[in-house]
Simulated scan of single mutants.
Amino acid sequence: MKNIRTPLTEAVVQSLCAGDEVLLSGVIYTARDAAHMRMLENLDHLPFDLKGQIIYYSGASPTRPSKAIGSCGPTTSGRMDEMTPKLLDLGLKGMIGKGDRDASVISAMCRNDAVYFIAIGGAGALIADSVVENTVIAYEDLGPEAVKKMVVKDMKLIVAIDATGKSLYKK
């Protein structure tokens, strides 16, 4: 198990291999389909600096009493594939979701030293236990698809596709 922190550096990304289990701590951002479309329409006014950051493809349920967030499991990453290469080219270093990625995303990951992590679908309540803080920072009108800044501690993930393009899905 590797302990890593955000923001991700090239050295950290290059040290990760497909199949590695990690505990992630630090700031991550949530964004799904609608938020990705808005970000691409407004590249000059992004809600956060992409450099070294991770986007978690998740739309959390309402916050539970005494918790930072409700259940927050991953959504299918392929829905963002068309929009992801541009964000990687602008400095995004990591993504968290579930499911395989298409060739254009993997090519952009290799070109930009980025990594794709998977979280276990159906385990949203357990994942929520690693969320320490949760704040909507953009596109509040999108409800569960608003961009959120989350602080996580020891979020359990698996490297699905590393910066060389090696993939758990291709074994």
Rank of each mutant, 00 (worst) to 15 (best):
D141F: 03
D81A: 10
V152E: 10
V115N: 00
L24G: 01
L43N: 09
K98I: 08
V136Q: 11
G121V: 10
I106M: 04
K67E: 01
A123L: 13
M83A: 06
P47E: 15
A114M: 02
I28H: 06
N42G: 01
G94M: 01
C110S: 11
L24T: 02
G97L: 05
M83V: 03
A123F: 13
S58D: 07
V22P: 03
S130Y: 05
A68V: 09
E21G: 07
S130G: 00
Q53D: 07
H45I: 02
M95T: 12
A123V: 09
K86W: 04
V22L: 08
T63I: 15
I120W: 01
I106T: 13
A34E: 15
P85R: 05
V27F: 08
R64V: 15
G124H: 04
S130H: 03
D33E: 00
S66G: 00
C110L: 04
A146R: 09
D141C: 00
A60S: 15
V147A: 13
M37D: 14
M95G: 13
E140W: 04
V151M: 11
I127L: 15
L24R: 02
K148I: 05
G19N: 09
E82R: 14
G52H: 10
I120Q: 07
A31V: 12
M150R: 04
A34Y: 11
L88Q: 09
S25R: 08
L43R: 14
R79G: 00
V131N: 01
N112P: 13
M83T: 09
I96S: 11
G73P: 14
K86F: 04
N112K: 08
V132W: 02
Y29T: 00
D113C: 15
I118C: 14
T30P: 04
G97I: 10
K149S: 09
N42K: 06
P65A: 11
G52P: 01
A68T: 03
D100A: 14
S25K: 07
G59A: 15
E82F: 04
F48N: 00
R79Q: 01
G70C: 09
R79Y: 06
A108W: 09
K148E: 07
V152R: 04
D113M: 12
S107W: 05
L23Y: 08
S58H: 02
G143T: 07
N42M: 03
N112Q: 13
V115C: 12
G26Q: 01
K148P: 03
A60R: 12
G59T: 08
L87Y: 07
A108I: 12
Y57R: 01
L90G: 07
E133F: 03
P144E: 07
M39Q: 12
A123Q: 14
I96Q: 02
Y116L: 04
R111G: 05
A125R: 11
A114T: 09
I118S: 11
L46S: 08
T30L: 13
Y29R: 07
G94H: 01
A60E: 08
